[in-house]
Design a protein around this nucleic acid. Structure first.
Length: 577
RNA sequence: GCGCCUGUAGCUCAGCUGGAUAGAGCAACUGCCUUCUAAGCAGUGGGUCAGGAGUUCGAAUCUCUUCAGGCGCGCCA
């Protein structure tokens, strides 16, 4: 219906003799949409006001001529010119209620579209260092990345979800050292460097190690190290590596494997599944000229964006407005983390994605410009990459912030959260606020049984409809599959609900285009609120037979929309509460 | 100092590619369960959209500026 109106608007605009460019501008700046308030009609367009301001015409005059043109189509029930120049349109009753049948026919696929045009999109998210369990901060990135993946997929994009495993850096050496120190703790008097990982999981990994690994050499660990915590941990790492490099490597890869698989397990519990786990180490080392990392750096050197200064290799990142040049290869010959990341992004581009989406913690925002610069330097538009920042989440328990630092070892993990309130509620609350804004995640609220707990409020609507259907089936099983009394206009009390479910596909499209899952949550709350209100005002099963038939079919569409909305967020609708 | 995010009701937040009277929930106060799930519904009160200036027929929304809060500014990862 909106398409028809838009076509007429185009015709209308061409009739006022303006060049095509101007007309397109008007079309882009205006919008034809579903009216918020059903009392005003079903659809609305602000086109006349936009055109009036651009063409210096009177908006009401424009609106009246457009109204006449639309009237002549004989398609609509009623057309009003309202306020400063809105055109509000009411469609026929038959068209208005047709959405019910459409939803019940399309079922799970209602709301799906092809606006994504089969674009190949890669989303990289979570990508937490594999040095410990995921904490609640990572959970937000996981929920967000996975949700936009689902939304984009349902709107016709081809999505690949990827986790980048930082397995090549110093952090893994610290982890390895931590595990070894736990192994030999009885021989070295419980010595433990300040900067080593102290969490319980470290000891658990050490206990799972194969007994046959030779650890005797490690017991000869020096007994004095630097007072500086950073230097201390490096000295310990070097010392351990020298004592037995074979065992070191074995323990290192074992620890990494254990951590990655526990991260994977936690994410599965959270209903997040990655298509690919990409290891930083697979980019190779700079010394190997055929490695990804060497070829990326060489390409940058060749095309003049990278240069040598003070024995280091620098990249000129000013192309994207970065404020200083960045080091790729240190003066000691080792590649920086940035160099790996440049190579990684080159690798992604080479894999042929149309769009890359990175979801990063907000503390990485300073990093965006240099990565964009590296893409430009490698001959790829920086527009190929979208970086979405996820702000921190504070977890509140009893009104107090819950700590989450990895080093100290004591922290509230994502797993703890899932055990506490369940994966669905956790995902829901993570998604309930725009990702790039601070979130206070109140655990007491997530468990509470009031209307303030929107998660249950929405689930309750879904469960109530199912329960109503069950009751109806017990009473009598021969329901007509027809909405006769709603269509005829005999029964009007579902109209607000019908109007609301009409909006759903637009909501999904909006969420997809803006990468904002929270839009769906607020929509579902509004829909649920309309349902609860309807449910309280009307005792469905005591209505006369034709009405009951109609209402049940309508509510089944409402149920379907709630279910689709939750599913696209990775949340399972509840059948019973 | 520079950069990014934020400031909307007492509290937690929607609304932001400019559009109709700025919305929810909580908290406060009133009502509604011998009938389909009260984790529900209906109602009342509550606003300098942080302050100021500008652009516009029209600004919570765009621009500039001030103030306040969070985060980031390594040859760390």
């Amino acid at each position: 219906m909106i398409d028809i109106i838009n076509r007429e608007i185009k015709k209308f605009l061409s009739s006022i003799e303006r060049d095509e460019e101007e007309i397109n501008l008007v079309i882009n700046k205006s919008s034809t949409s579903i009216l918020d308030d059903l009392n005003k009609g079903h659809l609305t367009t602000n086109i006349c006001m936009v055109a009036a301001s651009l063409f210096k015409l009177n908006p009401k005059d424009l609106a009246n001529s457009l109204k006449n043109q639309l009237d002549n189509l004989n398609l609509f029930e009623n057309i009003d010119v309202a306020g400063p120049g809105f055109i509000n349109i009411s469609v026929s009753r038959k068209d208005f209620v047709s959405i019910i049948k459409l939803i019940n026919d399309k079922k799970n696929s209602f709301g799906a579209s092809n606006i994504g045009n089969k674009k190949k999109i890669q989303i990289e998210f979570v990508s937490a260092n594999p040095t410990g369990p995921l904490h609640v901060g990572h959970g937000r990135g996981a929920a967000y990345g996975d949700a936009i993946g689902r939304i984009l997929e349902s709107t016709g994009s081809i999505v690949e979800k990827e986790y980048y495993v930082n397995d090549a850096g110093r952090q893994i050496d610290i982890l390895t050292a931590s595990v070894i120190l736990k192994l030999i703790k009885n021989d070295i008097g419980e010595y433990f460097p300040q900067n080593a990982y102290k969490g319980k999981y470290v000891e658990e990994i050490s206990k799972k190690l194969d007994q046959k690994i030779d650890i005797d050499e490690f017991k000869k660990l020096n007994n004095s190290f630097s007072d500086d915590p950073e230097e201390e941990i490096d000295e310990v790492i070097n010392n351990l590596q020298e004592l037995n490099s074979d065992s070191w490597n074995t323990i290192k890869s074992f620890s990494l494997r254990k951590i990655v698989s526990s991260i994977e397990d936690d994410l599965k519990l959270f209903n997040v599944n990655f298509d690919k786990w990409f290891y930083e180490s697979s980019l190779g080392v700079i010394e190997n000229t055929s490695s990804d990392i060497a070829s990326a750096v060489n390409k940058l050197k060749k095309n003049g964006h990278a240069y040598e200064k003070d024995k280091a290799i620098w990249l000129n990142t000013e192309i994207s407005g970065d404020d200083k040049h960045r080091v790729l290869i240190r003066d000691n010959g080792k590649a920086t983390y940035f160099a790996s990341d440049v190579a990684y992004h080159k690798n992604k581009v080479d894999r042929g994605f149309d769009q890359l989406i990175n979801i990063w913690g907000a503390d990485h925002h300073g990093y965006i410009k240099r990565i964009e610069a590296s893409l430009e330097c490698l001959g790829t538009s920086k527009n190929k990459l979208i970086v979405k920042l996820v702000q921190f989440a504070n977890i509140l328990k009893g009104g107090k912030k819950v700590k989450m630092s990895t080093r100290s070892g004591e922290f509230y993990t994502l797993k703890n959260l899932i055990d506490d309130i369940g994966s669905d509620a956790a995902r829901f609350y993570y998604l309930s606020k725009q990702a790039d804004q601070h979130l206070d995640f109140d655990l007491d609220l997530a468990k509470s049984d009031s209307k303030e707990n929107i998660f249950y409020y929405i689930q309750y609507a879904h469960a109530r409809i199912i329960s109503l259907e069950d009751k109806a089936n017990q009473n009598s099983s021969n329901f007509k599959k027809a909405i006769t009394s709603i269509e005829s206009g005999d029964y009007l009390k579902c109209d607000k609900l019908i109007h609301e479910i009409t909006k759903y596909p637009h909501i999904i499209n909006k969420a997809a285009l803006s990468l904002q899952p929270h839009i769906i949550i607020y929509y579902l709350r509004d829909l649920s609120q309309l349902f609860h209100s309807f449910y309280n005002d009307n005792h469905v099963l005591s209505e006369k037979k034709e009405n009951v038939d109609s209402i049940l079919i309508c509510l089944s569409a409402v149920k379907q929309v709630i279910s689709n909305g939750l599913n696209v967020l990775g949340i399972s609708p509840m059948q019973k509460m």
